[in-house]
Design a protein around this nucleic acid. Sequence first.
RNA 1: GUGGGCGUAGCUCAGCUGGCAGAGCACCGGGUUGUGGUCCCGGGUGUCGCGGGUUCGAGCCCCGUCGCUCACCCCA
Length: 430
Amino acid sequence: MTARFQAPKGTYDLLPPRSALFLAVVQALTTRLARAGYEHVQTPIFEDTALFERGVGESTDVVQKEMYTFTDRGGRSLTLRPEGTAGVMRAVIEHHLLDGALPVKLWYTGPNFRYEQPQSGRYRQHTQVGAEAVGLDDPLLDAELIAVADAGFRDLGLSDYVVKLASLGCGQCRPPYREALTSFLAGLDLDAATRERARLNPLRVLDDKRPEVKAQVAEAPVMLDALCESCAEHFAVVRRALDSFGVHYEIDRFLVRGLDYYTRTTFEFVHNRLGAQASIGGGGRYDGLIAELGGPSASGVGFGLGVDRIMLACEAEGLTPYQDSRVDVFGVGLSAAARERLAEIVDHLRRREMRADLSYGDRGLKGAMRGADRSGAQYALVLGDRDIEAGVAQVKDLQDGTQEQVRIDEVVEYLANRLGAPPRRISGGA
RNA sequence: GUGGGCGUAGCUCAGCUGGCAGAGCACCGGGUUGUGGUCCCGGGUGUCGCGGGUUCGAGCCCCGUCGCUCACCCCA
């Protein structure tokens, strides 16, 4: 029984009942986004390789060594998207959305692909729920996105996480700061790989987790102390807004994001029980990205929330909103003829918006009843040849074991009344 | 890409110094030919990840390989 094939390295199959958690996570987050006026957008799962090289940044690890790039039969270099923002920005530019009402507020969800060494919470294919608010640099949008993600997490029942916040400055104040940081780093005792990183993006050295690096970097100059007046004001508004929303956050002087395009506000949601890959979401503002991709000079702010890690976070906090029952009514037929009749009744029940299933195949009464039990149904609908002859069905309440005889031509209405059609909704809630 | 740990039934795992592959749960059947869960009885469902090697004999030892896992790097 050894499987000849297995899921590719770094990927996994999402099976029931856990798959219900996936849907619950996506639904919780996207519901909050829709409520805040964000509309759904879908872009291709692969794009021109050059889009990601320009959009994500040549110096990033993602572009340098993690992209799934291939040449199609037409000789085009394409890449499975490693993140969501670049593709959405491409679509925004291509369809001139910035010529309309601003800001453009969009959300999206789907898989991203990165060729990484798998680890807890890190996969080669992972799903994100993302959102972008484009066309304005209003700091209230930054705060809105953080608040929306936070609210979505709370809706899921999550609480053991922190919101980290920082500002990376802009084209005015970042270059001089970067100079200062570079000269500071030059005076440290760092290994070759880290020196190279410092050359590509000195900010990222601040994020190093190794104690020997952390200690040396503790006294490094901090961007937040070097913000220009307009960036400082922008950041102050974000903070005031979050305060007024009641969103708790902590300022992280060394918060750095891995993608090159971030400016000004950056934020990250870090869960406390996830091990090394603890970031369940992150994002920030990008001022140069749209122009970099050939669009107008416009600002945007967005986030990516990691569905896989959010699921792990839910499980770490004991939140498993698995559906407890698949259906409300389960048909148990004692003969082939009875099963045919039941299939018809079940079809009617479904048309009346009841959740119904039946025992397929010749399993015998005991097996069929066991199927009814496992389905979690409230009622079993038992039908045998004797019943058909008498024009009745047996409706058994699987909770208390009581059973009633109901005329077949009245059984749909009977169950609709008992269940209160349309019946309870599939909430997926805990 | 680098380093540590681990691959035995559907799942969680035991298996001594190399000597007939096991347990619990799950699953299937029966006890009950028209009634589930609890209970009782019965059933092992297996390429011991894969490929070589050593040996009379390998789940166990050696080499390789694939995968999982944890950490670095990086990130959701």
